[in-house]
Every structure is written in C-alpha cells, then in structure tokens.
Nucleic acid binder design. Structure first.
Lengths: 247, 247
DNA sequence: CCTTCTCCTTGATCGTGATCATGGAAGGCA
DNA sequence: TGCCTTCCATGATCACGATCAAGGAGAAGG
C-alpha cells in the first residue's frame, strides 16, 4: 500500500483516521462504507489540541468549517448586545460544533475548550460537496442537525417549565446518559465545567447550583466533591428531573 | 405541453406551483433556477387546507414529510411524560415545519393550525434525493435547519435571561419583523394565537401576559384589542426587548 | 513557602412572576 | 336569541430563586 507513509506521518502527530477512531460509530462517518470513509477522511483537517480556555472559533468569525469533538469538551457562548453571555451548549466527543453558523456564514457564538481538547475540522464546502455523492453522509448530516433541534426544544422546555431542582437533575441525568453512550461510566465522571457555567447554561444563579447540589448530596442522590461526581441513585434523579408540577 | 391538464387540475384545487407562489423567494426553492424549480415542484403534494384546531401531524407519528406553510399559521406542541404541554414554536408562511423529526423518524410534537392554514407537503425522501442533484436546494435545506438552530438559541437566551417584559417585547418585535419580511405591515397585525399560547411559548403565566400587555398599552407602546395589535412605538419596544439587566 | 486569584459554599433578604380567585367579554352553536 | 364555553383582565397573596454579603478551599505563580 503506497499510503503507509501517509498513515505513519499522521499517526505521529495524532491519529485522525476515521477508520481507527473509536468514535466513528457515533460521529458523522457513522454508516459509511470503508471506501466512503476514506473519501470522508481525506477532507478532514488536523488541528493542534486546544488547551483549556482556548477558543476554537469566535462569535462572528466567518463560518468555514464544522468541528467534530474527538476528546475533551467545549462550551459555546453567545454575547448579545451589551448583555451578559449566554452559554448555549456543551459539546462532548463525537458531537458536531458549528452547525448553527451555516445560515449566516458566521459563527453565532464563541467555542471555548473546557479542558485539553482535540477536534477534527471539517471544511463545510467540502463536506457539502461530498454529501452530494454519499447519501449516507448527507443523511447523517441531516440527522445531526435534526437531533440538535430536538435537543434544543427539550432545553426550552427545561428553561420554561422546570424548577431549579429539576434542571439540575436533568443536567446530571443527561450528562450521565451521554457518558454512557460513549462507553464511559454513567455513574462516575468529572465535570469539565464550572458551577458558573452550569448555572449560566441552566438559567440559574451560581449560588442556586451550589445549594441544590448540596441538597442532592444530603439526600443521597449524588456525591459531589469539587468537580468529581458520583451518581448514587440515578433512578431517583431521573424521577426528580421528570416529576410533575405536583411537587 | 402535455402537462397542461395537470396544471389546470392543480389550479382548480389551489395553486401549488412554486413559480407563481409569492413565497418562493423566502421558501425552499429560493435560489433555484426555473428548470430546477420544476423538478422541485413535481415532488410537492397538495393538501386540503387545515381548519383552525386541526392537526397537521401528531407527536410520535412516523416522520415522512416536511411542510412549508403557504398561508395561515401553526403551533408545535410537545407533551413530555405526564407533564404539561410545551409550545415549542409558531410557524408562519414560508417556514418549514417538521425538520426536527428527521433524526428519530417521528415527529417530536404535534402541529396544530391556529387558523385556516394551507401547507405544501414535501416528502422527505424525495427531497433528500433531489437535494443530491440540486446543490442550491441542498444548501437551502442546510440553511433552513441552521437558521432554526440559531433561532432556538435565541429563544433559550430569552427563556433563561429575560424578564417577563423583555419576553413580551421580544415576541412582538420578532412577529413584527417576520410580518415585514413577508410583505405585511409590521405595525398592524392580528395574533392567530391565544394569550395562553403566548404564555406557554414564552414561559409565562397567562395572567402575566395579560398584565404586561395592559402595561405596554398604558405606556403607549402598543394598542391591543383582543387579538388585534397595533404597534405604536416599535423603537421603544425594541429597546425594552434588549435592555440591560440594568433595569 | 506564602500570596493572590478564582471557584465554591452558605446565610439573609428581597422581588418577580406564579398561583388562586373572580368577573367580564367574546365567540360558537342550538 | 340566549346559553354555554372559552378567553381575557385584574386583584391579592405567596414562593422560588436572584441578589447581596461574607468566608473558605483550591489552584496558579512568584
């Protein structure tokens, strides 16, 4: 195979071939045939890992690419007018960042790494072209966007109807679920975001986040130490997250 | 032309040809060449107009099509668990309904007509196929979804950071803007939704909606009589919608 | 090491908007 | 026409969570 050198060179920097990526079953190449994956692979750009606090792109930067998170995590923050920032989303491995920039050809928020984070950069014009000949890829892209729409609607429900307790419980059960899907423990994980980030995302004051975490702990639902989280009673947590207005 | 009969038959029911639709410059066929528009036209299905209160699709129905609103308006309502309904969106002419169902192949909410409403049904598998050969159409579809993502993020900001006054003001300025873009008066329009719908959408109690509308009226910002709205001072309304936490 | 931030926790008070309660207006239907 | 239902407005009270205030814990950097 004449591409062994290419393969080797890539590996030296860091592995970016989709075939060997443990996330390929969750990420865009999902459902691609091997030869299709090669094509897809070819348009992906490597990126130096981001350190904590570094930005992947800034609000209003021209939109060029979407990014798949390989490891680590990011938050997306939007500043509107002279108001405060609004944290609109957290992104975990295999998730796509930047899809909301297609329309206006600018990123509608700033993406900041919450820890050391690596991403695959996917130039959107190339992706669009490739999606012409690969129906599976196109479908996957539609699905990714559709899923994000659905998640947003769920978030709206959370913000407009749920109490602070329900919001926190939802946040933890959702995180737990996302970790499980990625093959990590759904019961023990480390938060990469601060209390302030969580509060901002959930529409709560930092103090409220702290207090409720304390309460959850004293109720035996979770064990929290700094950013280290152990979920002790996932079922009850789910129940809290979904409980009726009938409190 | 052998298709004159088809053309005529269509017109008898109601005009559904994109070429003559006044919304084509806002809708999916935007930026399509005439001959491409014909292809697009061919996959669209006619639909009998919906009467007020009738549903276009129900939550958890299998996803088959997206719908472009031609006239009238719809709301999308999601029922989760045994909790209350959440109104996730209003749809006006030229907007696409159902895009959030692609991912799970089920509609994530029920779409209900707020008044007599006509829609163009666009079977998604056909749309996807066609988007393969029509890059402009594909781009338009990506943009539509991306725009909806952006709008959702704006809504999250509204729900998590804005006061009741700001929410109502935002709601009216946004409606005003959407009417203007569609060639209607941005200052005088009729609300197709009830106060309860508005409250549900904005995360407010009906009473709060009523009270604030009354206040806006006494402040000379708007004149409201039932569902008839006249915006008297759009600038101030925009200012209220955007004003700082510095109240 | 100690200093200096940033991050987190806990307490006390206050305000916005939900909730409860009621009456009136308007629209659908016999 | 009048009945009945749904929708809307307005008043009184209350609770959830924001805000203000202060102190502790942990990390970064000299």
């Amino acid at each position: 195979m004449p591409d062994s050198l290419t393969g080797r060179r890539r590996s030296v920097l860091h592995e970016t071939r989709c075939q060997t990526c443990s996330l390929s079953s969750l990420c865009l190449p999902l459902a691609l045939e091997v030869q299709d994956m090669d094509q897809f692979d070819a348009i992906i750009r490597r990126r130096a890992p981001l350190k904590k606090g570094e930005t992947l792109f800034r609000q209003d930067n021209p939109f060029t690419s979407v990014f798949a998170v390989r490891s680590g995590s990011l938050k997306q923050v939007t500043t509107e007018g002279s108001g405060e920032d609004q944290l609109t989303n957290f992104y975990l491995p295999s998730e796509l960042v930047g899809l909301d920039g297609i329309d206006e050809e600018r990123y509608p928020g700033t993406a900041v790494a919450l820890e050391t984070t690596t991403v695959c950069e996917i130039p959107f014009d190339r992706l669009d072209q490739l999606s012409e000949s690969l129906p599976e890829l196109r479908g996957q892209l539609y699905r990714s966007m559709s899923k994000e729409l659905r998640d947003d609607r769920r978030m709206m429900r959370l913000l407009s109807r749920k109490t602070a307790d329900q919001r926190l419980a939802s946040f933890f059960t959702s995180l737990s679920d996302r970790f499980r899907r990625r093959g990590y423990s759904p019961y023990s994980f480390r938060l990469s975001m601060s209390r302030a980030d969580i509060g901002n995302y959930l529409g709560l004051a930092v103090e409220t986040v702290s207090r409720i975490l304390g309460r959850f702990q004293s109720q035996g639902l979770v064990e929290v130490s700094g950013r280290e989280v152990h979920i002790l009673d996932l079922d009850s947590l789910i129940q809290v997250a979904e409980e009726e207005g009938a409190k």
